[in-house]
């Protein structure tokens, strides 16, 4: 339940009167834009549910959370959330989020975007934000192709998978995103599928509370393009496939967790460590170098 400003008025476990029965996440959604544009059996809506429950679990103040998304099917997520949110240009979700996190250090900035946005067009921004240990949480919804533009092969399309620009099958090596994130310096790396939705939401609430660059890859079914072109059935069939072939291994070496075409998917929380963030490093370093002349930036004293 929510009032006109979207503030949550009551705990969801209270039973409301029958005339005001509302979805418990309604205060977090811009319900005037619903139903959303995502296809039937697409997994992005499930991941959005996981994000909202993760945010509720983490107990963060909604005024101090901002969501940035890029272009693509999953880029719509920012527009559907009743939080401070921005739908940025293609691949530039992480640079925008970096600016937001540096401009207002109190904010927790979350990037929700797709594999095309984060690993292809924004790949360079992704590795540099991870290298600097920027205070961001990146949720990458991986559906193995560029779904919004018509199912072209992307950097995560597995070998042999059919795509509209790979009619005989893709012959490129795909990215292994958790390995890319870990080797670039991310402090929290996890991979789940949209079937493991409770683990997704627990993982998101953990990542939101960790200062530094956290990365969560969520594999989601794309029924309209990836599954249709590869004759894999509906999103429900892909969910059943995840149920059969996903193996939870928290200690897996990220070098060995490539995803092949309709092959075993290793999921789990692979990296969870602590490292000073970009701003902590900057403050400590400049304090050492400048001594008394150093003025710490708090987000308010910018003049």
């Amino acid at each position: 339940m929510s009032n006109s400003k979207g503030q949550i008025l009551s705990n969801k476990l209270e039973i409301p009167k029958s005339d005001e029965l509302k979805h418990p996440m309604e205060g977090y959604l811009r319900e005037e834009r619903f139903p959303h544009i995502w296809c039937s059996t697409c997994g992005i809506g499930t991941v959005l549910t996981g994000f909202i429950t993760g945010l509720q679990k983490s107990g963060l103040d909604r005024e101090k959370v901002a969501v940035v998304s890029g272009i693509g099917c999953s880029g719509r997520a920012a527009g559907y959330l009743r939080l401070d949110s921005f739908h940025s240009t293609h691949g530039r979700a992480i640079p925008f989020a970096t600016g937001l996190a540096l401009g207002n250090p109190e904010l927790k900035v979350v990037v929700i975007s797709g594999d095309g946005d984060i690993a292809a067009i924004g790949g360079n921004h992704f590795i540099h934000a991870a290298r600097r240990n920027m205070n961001l949480t990146v949720i990458c919804i991986n559906n193995f192709n560029y779904a919004m533009t018509g199912g072209q092969a992307g950097p995560t399309t597995p070998e042999e998978a059919n795509a509209s620009t790979a009619p005989f099958g893709c012959y490129e090596y795909p990215f292994n995103l958790p390995f890319l994130a870990e080797s670039s310096g991310a402090i929290y790396v996890a991979r789940w599928t949209s079937l493991h939705i409770r683990r997704v939401s627990n993982s998101i609430s953990e990542a939101l509370l960790k200062p530094g660059f956290s990365f969560i890859e969520v594999i989601a079914p794309c029924p309209t393009l990836y599954a249709r072109r590869n004759r894999l059935g509906s999103g429900l069939d892909l969910m059943k496939f995840y149920h059969d072939s996903a193996i939870i291994d928290h200690n897996a070496d990220t070098r060995d967790i490539d995803i092949g075409y309709q092959d075993r998917i290793t999921i789990g929380k692979f990296v969870d460590k602590d490292k000073p963030t970009f701003l902590e490093n900057k403050d400590n370093f400049l304090k050492k170098k400048l001594g008394d002349k150093f003025i710490q930036y708090t987000g308010q004293n910018w003049e």
Binding site: I15, L21, P35, T46, S201
Partner: peptide, 17 residues
Amino acid sequence: NLCEMICPDFSIFVMEG
């Protein structure tokens, strides 16, 4: 609450009885 969490369309929810 699994149906509520797995629903991609926010169209089902459970209230505790």
